[in-house]
């Protein structure tokens, strides 16, 4: 596959937290543009660490990482931030701010330090933030503080924040793991619609094989910091993710 067709490409990535053993060992992967890639694996297999490395939050000690055909390094990391949206496991919402204010965080990368520091965002950004909340079906919760929202509503706020960022790639770390299956499927369906409409690449860590089967174009199985299986789920492989995991 041509490198311009890839949203992310990693070669020989190794990562260890300071003074500890390798968490990621020689990871190589390719994430095609505009597709949904799901990463599965048992707890402690290094999924969250891999996600943070791909998001540019953690810097690998070895290996090479390319995002949108640019090498991710100290110089390029900051410019890539606005192109790569990251939704952490606990969503990373500021509890004491309203839904709308949290969504507006997605626009900070292009807003400078003027009136924004007084909480006065440009009108078009506020309108777009409200539109993102409307799209997520929680437009009426825009002035509600996040700590008052339910789990599913918070999930939608986090997605709306990522949408306002207008990224080309969205990395989501088990962001629906706290929801029941039906709600998780609904959120993922919403995410897929948005990703298709905005031509976004979607990469997520996921535990639930049923959701992976329904939503993934590509599946990577991680174990002990290494990718042990990779396959598409479009029928070209016979085994399902759940069978491989077993």
């Amino acid at each position: 596959m041509d490198s311009t067709d890839l949203a992310l490409r990693a070669e020989g990535i190794c990562f260890a937290y300071r003074g500890e053993e390798w968490v990621l060992k020689d990871i190589s992967l390719s994430v095609p543009r505009g597709k949904a890639t799901m990463i599965m694996g048992p707890s402690g297999s290094g999924k969250t660490t891999l996600m943070k490395v791909l998001a540019g939050i953690l810097c690998p000690q070895r290996g090479r990482l390319e995002a949108l055909s640019q090498e991710v390094g100290k110089r390029t990391r900051r410019s890539l931030y606005s192109l790569i949206g990251y939704i952490p496991q606990q969503l990373g919402l500021v509890r004491n701010l309203t839904s709308l204010e949290n969504v507006l965080m997605g626009a900070l990368g292009r807003c400078g330090h003027g009136k924004v520091m007084l909480g006065l965002f440009p009108r078009h950004e506020v309108e777009q933030a409200q539109a993102a909340l409307d799209l997520m079906g929680i437009g009426d919760k825009s002035s509600e503080k996040v700590f008052r929202l339910s789990g599913g509503q918070r999930q939608r706020v986090a997605i709306a924040r990522t949408l306002l960022q207008r990224p080309r790639v969205v990395l989501a770390d088990e962001f629906v793991s706290d929801l029941d299956l039906a709600l998780a499927a609904e959120i993922l369906r919403l995410m897929r619609q948005v990703a298709e409409r905005e031509q976004m690449t979607f990469v997520a860590n996921m535990h639930e094989p049923q959701l992976v089967r329904e939503f993934a174009d590509q599946v990577l199985i991680l174990d002990h910091g290494q990718i042990v299986r990779r396959f598409p789920t479009d029928g070209s492989q016979e085994r399902s993710p759940s069978e491989v995991l077993q």
């Binding site: 943070k52 998001a55 540019g56 939050i57 900051r78 931030y81 606005s82 790569i84 949206g85 990251y86 939704i87 952490p88 496991q89 606990q90 969503l91 990373g92 919402l93 500021v94 509890r95 004491n96 701010l97 204010e101 965080m105 997605g106 626009a107 900070l108 990368g109 292009r110 330090h113 924004v116 520091m117 986090a158 924040r161 960022q165």
Partner: peptide
């Protein structure tokens, strides 16, 4: 919470933004 800092920093927010929109509101209580 470092996860909130990471999530907002990931949107392209500067250090000053992080202080204004994460550190101060989270510590408001």
């Amino acid at each position: 919470d470092p996860e909130i800092v990471e999530a907002v920093r990931g949107t392209g927010a500067s250090r000053l933004h992080l202080v204004r929109f994460v550190v101060l509101p989270e510590g408001a209580n």
